[in-house]
Design a protein around this nucleic acid. Structure first.
Lengths: 342, 342
DNA sequence: CTGAAAGCGCTAACAT
DNA sequence: ATGTTAGCGCTTTCAG
């Protein structure tokens, strides 16, 4: 029946006839301390189950060694990979991470930002919610010179380090691929064009059309959100068109999977009647039939890259909240959903 | 160019000619404080952008108002729903949550447990990793009377509140359904039988067979993990059997989706040649063709339930770490992957 | 190389 | 209803 009062540096100091200061230094491996002394302290700490009180330490040092991460969703392989990447780098550099997910709403994102601010995180990494366009909730970080970095879903109205893929290029590659497979009328199903990723992919789509002398028609661009039933809706919109499209570029794998299922229900063959390209290389793209051609996104690399950047800023105090864009590679993965030629 | 030194209660006190104590009380809405005084304090705090320093407060009160949540994965709708449920209740009760994911490894789970312990969370909610069988890393919480609760992936070697579904019943329902669809040789593809959920579902499978006078054959039970390629493996094992099975109960929707895809590749028809039932009601179960019959799991309810329990324990200091099991409802959802009869 | 002492910001007895 | 005071556990000058 241990009573479990916490052990403090005073307890250790007393038992070893040292001052708390020395114990503190020893515990931090301060080289100024005699090796023997340090060993004695470390051993006793171990034996007594000492654990540092982060609050006291944070209070004193005004640092938390914590990085806040705001994401718009949690349940995708992409996001999990990003988080894993961030975690690896952060842990190695001695930072903990605090995950807050906004569930795709600005309101929640705002709350999360305030929360992390009040938690006094040393830095923030964020990917914006679907409908965020007002970024005032991030200003407190800027004002206090707390590093704020964005990945994937970014916004240019705040100067910050941004880690992204080249969405224009990705949209271009996807569309070009469909054109090369013989598609002439390509529908582009996407989401909120205020969000950089979707705007850029549309730009890529346009670029590919132009380059191949295909007309850009506004009514072939379908803007919806990506809720569970959106795929159904897209197929309905598609079927309602006077002239049947022969290509479909959806900027989301989940949604493209639903589209394919719906298309098949109507008797249309994928890719024969309509070739489909998705986005993200989510597991689902390898699960449905036909397997979905998609754009691969290096989640883990993105996570590592942005975390490394942040750690660097934290260490050097340099380049904090300075506009800078880092592009990580992305690539088209061709699978059966779009293959019409050998 | 605000210098942004943080505002403290001393700053407010000075400006209002009050003592820090009064300011502190006013900020906490202590009813003993004069309403006018309180208003003055609150207004000034607002105006000056005061934010409470949680470290000082935690250090003083020895509480963190934080709940640690350890989960074995992040990217499933089930888990996201659970987290959302926990968050709702926790937020309402004034607690923050700290999410740590073990990525299905005991090693990471152990680290996370230590981390949360060092972070001095007020309570812990956990769902065990795939291969956790030694729970010593949770003992520090017990020793310090920190409430520790489990959901879904539980273990009976530690006395704790557990929130689960009735896995025996779920396994029973799934199997019975297959039997009712005319299946005679039902393969049960599952995972680590040390983990309660899988052991219980197997028990349900056995019970259904017994009840319908079908023989239980050990070689029809396939134990694997649920990695991405496991579905392929399962189908291989299945095809290698001398006598072809006509039913397949997989305790994971992702995996059952892969199985269905693989079965189709070999020319077998689902459900005609082999009827399939999955588990979890993940989105993917509605995405592949045929849609997968599965067991629905009320994630959000589970999250809310366990968080309510924890908050209660925290408020009352009663029933902490006492063995108690709460069962939330689950149900079979019949879809096309198993429907052989009208 | 080690120690003394102050202070980070807040809260809670204990006064008044 | 408000003020005084001490202390939570740690780090860090400054002194020795």
């Amino acid at each position: 029946m241990t009573t479990n009062k916490d052990i403090t540096i005073y307890d250790l100091a007393e038992e070893l006839n040292l001052s708390p200061a020395t114990v503190s230094r020893a515990l931090k491996n301060n080289p100024i301390i005699n090796a023997d002394t340090r060993k004695k302290v470390l051993d006793l700490a171990q034996q007594k189950g000492y654990r540092s009180n982060a609050f006291a330490s944070n209070l004193r040092t005004q640092k938390t060694n914590t990085i806040g991460v705001i994401v718009h969703e949690l349940n995708s392989y992409f996001m999990t990979a990003v988080l894993a990447g961030i975690e690896e780098v952060a842990t190695e550099a001695g930072y903990d991470i605090l995950i807050a997910h906004s569930n795709e709403t600005v309101a929640k994102e705002r709350t999360n930002a305030h929360n992390l601010f009040n938690k006094r995180v040393d830095g923030v990494i964020a990917s914006l919610a679907y409908d965020t366009d007002d970024l005032t909730h991030f200003e407190p970080f800027i004002k206090k010179h707390i590093p704020l970095l964005f990945f994937d879903r970014i916004d240019n109205s705040i100067a910050a380090t941004q880690v992204v893929i080249d969405n224009v290029e990705a949209g271009y590659q996807a569309t070009k691929h469909l054109i090369q497979q013989g598609c002439k009328r390509i529908v582009h199903a996407t989401a909120n064009l205020k969000r950089n990723v979707y705007a850029d992919r549309l730009a890529g789509y346009k670029k590919a059309l132009l380059e191949h002398k295909l007309p850009y028609k506004e009514d072939l661009v379908l803007v919806n959100d990506f809720k569970e039933d959106t795929g159904k809706l897209i197929v309905e919109q598609l079927l309602a068109m006077k002239q049947q499209p022969d290509g479909l570029f959806v900027t989301n794998d989940f949604c493209s999977a639903v589209c394919i299922a719906e298309l098949k229900k109507t008797g249309l063959k994928v890719p024969k009647d309509i070739a489909v390209v998705g986005f993200n290389n989510d597991v689902v793209s390898r699960m449905v039939e036909p397997n979905i051609t998609t754009i691969n996104y290096p989640g883990k690399l993105m996570g590592r890259t942005i975390a490394e950047r942040l750690v660097q800023q934290l260490k050097t105090k340099k380049n904090i909240n300075k506009q800078e864009q880092i592009i990580v590679p992305s690539e088209l993965i061709v699978r059966d959903s779009s293959k019409r030629k050998k």
